[in-house]
């Protein structure tokens, strides 16, 4: 009690410093959670994809589930030789993976990771609860595209350059419909704050605006650069796309950020359209406190599983078809969805 008392006393005396300390602690926790989560996503993708392909996947390190596989990969990548190509634009080349991880951390700062249910009330777990968090998260997610362009441009490699072009063309085509979808959700929720969006979902927005949901899922897959929209990395066409020249830990970072983004993107999808952490409270002590977390986790896992399912069963589109789809179908349809959201939203308001 003494410690808590002194902490609260300190908080009352120096609110600014206290907020800073809390912020730093929160940031560290969030970074740890996101990175560990992303490692689990990579492991999960390898295992689930193996299941789809009728094989075993990693099962030699860390027991029969191969849970330590990612640890081995990380150690290997950390201790690899660091190669910067002779003709590369060194500054940009070095900064690209850092910008990529910066982007994901920016997203992680504003995205709610769930809530704790204490005393009949939900306390959202979010580091920076800002009023425009939905829009901010969607914008920060696309920093990855800038990192992709930096990586591709600076490598001085033809494949990387093509990968970078493809990445940017795709990003521009799909960022707009994605933003419009976020706006439609905000219109219905009367708020751009993700916490308020979740709390306003008495009916999941996936049912309230199915068209917007579908468009958002497609745009999200595009944003994450996953099949059928992984043209910037299309291994069979342009070797490894934008990261062709990257090796060792730099490549590890870039590769890792893709999965970080996948995790954060699927959280965003669950928050915006699938009711977030809302769900019936489990009437068991302790579990009732974290039951919102469990609901969100389940939704995120289902979304991620869906992404892997799509990867194992769809063909890759050509880049011109991707942009065609984006500009000619996604954008008008998302505007239509916005109109629908305005109509329905104002009716219920």
């Amino acid at each position: 009690m003494d410690i808590i008392g002194s902490i609260s006393q300190f908080a009352a005396q120096e609110p600014a410093i206290f907020a800073l300390i809390i912020g730093v602690i929160g940031a560290a926790v969030i970074a740890a959670v996101v990175n560990v989560g992303a490692m689990l996503v990579i492991w999960g993708e390898r295992k689930v994809l193996s299941d789809f392909c009728n094989r075993f996947g990693p099962n030699r390190v860390g027991g029969r589930w191969g849970i330590l596989q990612l640890g081995a990969d990380a150690i290997k990548l950390f201790t690899k030789e660091d190669i910067i190509p002779a003709d590369a634009d060194k500054g940009v080349y070095v900064w690209a993976p850092i910008v990529a991880s910066m982007g994901t951390m920016l997203v992680a700062a504003a995205i709610p990771f769930g809530a704790l249910h204490i005393g009949g009330k939900d306390y959202p777990l979010v580091v920076a609860n800002m009023d425009i968090s939905a829009f901010y998260v969607e914008a920060a997610l696309s920093i990855m595209a800038i990192a992709v362009f930096m990586a591709g441009y600076s490598s001085n490699n033809k494949y990387s350059m093509l990968g970078a072009f493809r990445g940017v063309a795709r990003m521009i085509a799909y960022e707009v419909p994605m933003g419009v979808c976020v706006i439609s959700v905000a219109v219905m929720a009367h708020s751009l704050n993700l916490v308020e969006i979740v709390q306003s979902q008495t009916v999941w927005y996936a049912f309230a605006q199915p068209l917007g949901f579908v468009i958002f899922v497609i745009a999200l897959i595009t944003d994450l650069g996953r099949i059928p929209f992984d043209q910037s990395e299309a291994e069979e066409e342009i070797i490894s796309g934008y990261n062709t020249e990257y090796s060792g830990i730099r490549w590890g970072l870039l590769y890792f950020q893709e999965y970080n983004n996948a995790l954060l993107g699927s959280i965003l999808l669950s928050l915006l359209f699938l009711g977030g952490w809302q769900g019936p409270i489990i009437p068991i002590p302790v579990l009732d406190i974290i039951s919102p977390l469990i609901w969100l986790l389940m939704k995120v896992i289902i979304v991620l599983w869906f992404f892997i399912w799509v990867r194992s069963s769809l063909f890759r589109l050509r880049i011109d078809q991707v942009t065609d789809l984006g500009w000619k179908w996604m954008l008008p349809l998302s505007l239509l969805n916005l109109g629908w959201a305005v109509l329905v939203g104002s009716y219920f308001a």
């Binding site: 390898r46 193996s50 094989r55 075993f56 996947g57 990693p58 099962n59 030699r60 390190v61 191969g66 596989q69 081995a72 990969d73 290997k76 690899k80 190669i83 291994e235 069979e236 070797i239 490894s240 990261n243 062709t244 020249e245 990257y246 090796s247 490549w251």
Partner: peptide, 17 residues
């Protein structure tokens, strides 16, 4: 399934061991 041993194919020599 070489993936069982953590052995997967990569296309660019920069990322291979």
């Amino acid at each position: 399934d070489s993936d069982r041993f953590g052995c997967i194919p990569r296309n660019t020599p920069r990322q291979t061991d």
